[in-house]
Design a protein around this nucleic acid. Structure first.
Lengths: 159, 159
DNA sequence: CAGAACATGTTCCATTTGGAACAATACTGC
DNA sequence: GCAGTATTGTTCCAAATGGAACATGTTCTG
């Protein structure tokens, strides 16, 4: 086996060279969690990303509109619209017209949907554990505080 | 205007309720950086995600194979293959056969490609700055150390 | 060395995605 | 109240995506 640069470049050197250092790291870590998780969710439960995001949102709010889900997940409205129709068809969510606004509909999760969400959340929780394994308790506490601050700030951007 | 839950639910409440707390936060922050950035990159420079990721990798290594880029970016090989062909066609990268291995090709960035990368990196750097704005210097230092540790660990997973 | 197993990159094709136009409803300013 | 504007959700269509099979080349095993 040859040992020149092409054969085995150090593929982590970019961590120190990239122009947007922390954005690159954050994105890399996100991919390490989500790519294998979403592969497993599609394989084991047959849900695509927008469908699971919809279920996730509804699992944590009593009622939401499709617009709310689109805003929370930063996905286009039509992707959410399709996910709503598929999740309705398989009985994981329910929809009722909003008496106060004829444009919107009130979406809620069903017991079946909640059961599925619980199983899927476990996939993500387990993968999170694997990726976060090197951090000790105080590091986790510190990271959590920093991420919370950033996430809350990010939620105010692009209204 | 009505003030019931559907009208204006607090869309950040999920931050505290979600089963994979830090994974959710990290993913949310990543989206807040990358979604607007990639929209701008497509609009202003006409590059899709795999194409820019290819350019980004080649901007930081003298030579890489398509396989290396796929591994670094966790994208399927065929997406990278397509990106290589398009970036070759527009002159942002070059390709040479690897004399040591007939299956691989050595990819390098061209001066034009590097110029474009510099412009695109600035888009991402600026958006990173916006999202990270609430952190002070010591918080940034702490976050950087934690993210580095996680990213290096993640790079060893799923070899 | 021959054959099997593996690695790399490409093509094919079905699925997923998202922009744009649209229909229906609600809001705004006069 | 009415005309114009904005919002919500849907449909249409073109583009992006990724799994699987394939072609070519390399490595392993006996």
């Amino acid at each position: 086996m040859s040992t020149d640069a092409l054969a085995n470049p150090d593929l982590t050197a970019i961590f120190d060279a990239v122009e947007f250092r922390d954005a690159y790291r954050i994105s890399y870590i996100t991919n390490a969690i989500l790519v294998p998780s979403y592969d497993a969710i599609k394989r084991d439960f047959g849900l695509i990303r927008a469908e699971y995001l919809l279920l996730l949102c509804l699992a944590h709010y009593p009622v939401l509109s499709a617009k709310d889900v689109a805003k929370m997940t930063r996905r286009p409205r039509n992707s959410i619209s399709r996910a709503v129709h598929r999740m309705l068809a398989v009985g994981y969510i329910q929809r009722a017209p909003d008496p106060d606004d004829g444009r919107q509909a009130k979406l809620t999760i069903t017991p079946d949907g909640r059961t599925l969400h619980t199983q899927i959340a476990e996939v993500l929780r387990a993968r999170q554990q694997t990726v976060f394994e090197p951090l000790n308790d105080s590091e986790r506490t510190a990271l959590d505080a920093l991420l919370t601050k950033l996430a809350v700030h990010a939620s105010t951007l692009d209204t």
